[in-house]
C-alpha cells in the first residue's frame, strides 16, 4: 500500500468505488424484492426481472390488504410497538432519573443488581415458566410488561440526565415541585434526543421481533406481522392463505410467493418510513451508550 508521490494518487477513487459497490450490494437485494412484489405473479415466475417490474401489478398488495389475518397481525404489531415503546421509554427514563441522583438510598445495591442482569440470565425456559405462572402467555400484556425495563437503556438515560444543568431542577424544586413533577415537566422535554434514541432501539426491536409471538402466544389473533411472516416463510402455511382470500380476487393473479413478497414489503415499510427522521438521533445514542458510567 505504499503510495508513490510521483504517480497520481488512485486510492480515493478506488475507495469511492469500493464504497459504491458496498452500497449496491446492500440495496440491491431489497430493491429486487420490491420490484418483484410489484410485478404480476405469473409473469414473475418466468424470471428475468432485475431492475424494474415488467408487468406492473398491485394485485399482490390488494390480496395482502384483503387478508383479514394479515391486517389483524399488522394491527397487533402497531399496538404492540406503540404501547410497548411508550411504556418502556417512560418507565426506564423515570427509573433512570431517580438513579441519576447520587443521594438515592440504596443506589449501589440497585447498581449491582442491575449490572448483573446485563451479563447473566436464567435463559429461555425459566423465563417461559415465569410468564406461564404469571398468566401472561396468550395475553397481549406479554408484549408490554416483560420488556418494560432495560438496565442498559437506564445507563444511557442516566448519562444524558447528568448533563442537564442542575439549576433548572433547583428552580422547579423551589417552586414546590416534587421530583416526579420535575422529571415529567422539566427533564422529559429537555431529553428529546435520548428519548428518541431509546424509542428507536426499542421500537425497532418491538416491530421486528417475531419470536415472542411464536413462543409466548398461540392465539392467532394475537400474533404480530413478524410472526405471521415467520409462519408463512418458515412453515409455509400458504394453503391457509387461500382460504382467507375473498373470491373477488382471482387466484391466478397472485400466488403464495407474490403474497410473501408483498407482505415482506408491507412489514418493512413503517421502519423504512421512520428511519430518515430518527437517523440523526441513533448515532448520538450509540455514542452515549459506548461511554462508561
Amino acid at each position: 500500500m505504499k503510495i508513490n508521490r510521483n504517480k497520481p494518487d488512485v486510492f480515493p477513487k478506488v475507495n469511492a468505488l469500493l464504497m459504491i459497490l458496498i452500497c449496491f450490494i446492500t440495496l440491491y437485494p431489497i430493491w429486487y424484492t420490491i420490484v418483484l412484489s410489484f410485478n404480476d405473479a405469473n409473469d414473475a415466475q418466468m424470471g428475468g426481472i432485475y431492475w424494474w417490474p415488467r408487468v406492473f401489478s398491485l394485485k399482490s398488495y390488494s390480496a395482502v390488504f384483503a387478508n383479514a389475518s394479515i391486517v389483524n397481525a399488522f394491527t397487533i404489531s402497531v399496538l404492540r410497538t406503540v404501547i410497548g415503546t411508550l411504556t418502556h421509554v417512560f418507565f426506564t427514563a423515570m427509573t433512570a432519573y431517580a438513579f441519576s441522583k447520587k443521594r438515592l438510598i440504596g443506589r449501589n445495591i440497585f447498581l449491582a443488581i442491575g449490572t448483573f442482569t446485563m451479563f447473566f440470565n436464567g435463559g429461555l425456559i425459566p423465563f417461559f415458566l415465569l410468564l406461564k405462572n404469571l398468566g401472561m402467555l396468550n395475553n397481549f400484556i406479554v408484549y408490554i410488561v416483560p420488556t418494560m425495563f432495560n438496565f442498559f437503556h437506564l445507563i444511557i438515560f442516566t448519562s444524558f440526565f447528568r448533563g442537564i444543568p442542575g439549576s433548572l431542577e433547583e428552580s422547579a424544586m423551589i417552586d414546590g415541585a416534587n421530583e416526579f413533577r420535575t422529571f415529567v415537566q422539566i427533564i422529559l422535554p429537555l431529553s428529546m434526543p435520548v428519548l428518541a434514541t431509546i424509542a428507536l432501539f426499542h421500537g425497532v426491536w418491538n416491530w421486528n421481533d417475531f419470536f415472542w409471538g411464536v413462543i409466548f402466544v398461540n392465539d392467532e389473533a394475537l400474533q404480530p406481522i413478524g410472526t405471521y411472516l415467520y409462519r408463512i416463510i418458515a412453515e409455509t402455511a400458504s394453503s391457509n392463505m387461500k382460504i382467507n382470500m375473498p373470491g373477488a380476487i382471482s387466484l391466478k393473479a397472485v400466488n403464495s410467493q407474490s403474497i410473501k413478497l408483498a407482505t415482506m414489503v408491507v412489514a418493512t415499510t413503517p421502519i423504512v418510513l421512520t428511519y430518515p427522521f430518527l437517523q440523526k438521533y441513533f448515532v448520538k445514542g450509540v455514542m452515549i451508550g459506548s461511554v462508561k458510567e
Binding site: T26, I30, W207, N208, G226, Y230, A267, T268, I271
Partner: peptide, 12 residues
C-alpha cells in the same frame, strides 16, 4: 445506506 439493513427484521 449501510445502516439500513440493521433495521430490517431477520424474518424479512
Amino acid at each position: 445506506i449501510s445502516y439500513l439493513p440493521h433495521f430490517i427484521s431477520w424474518v424479512v
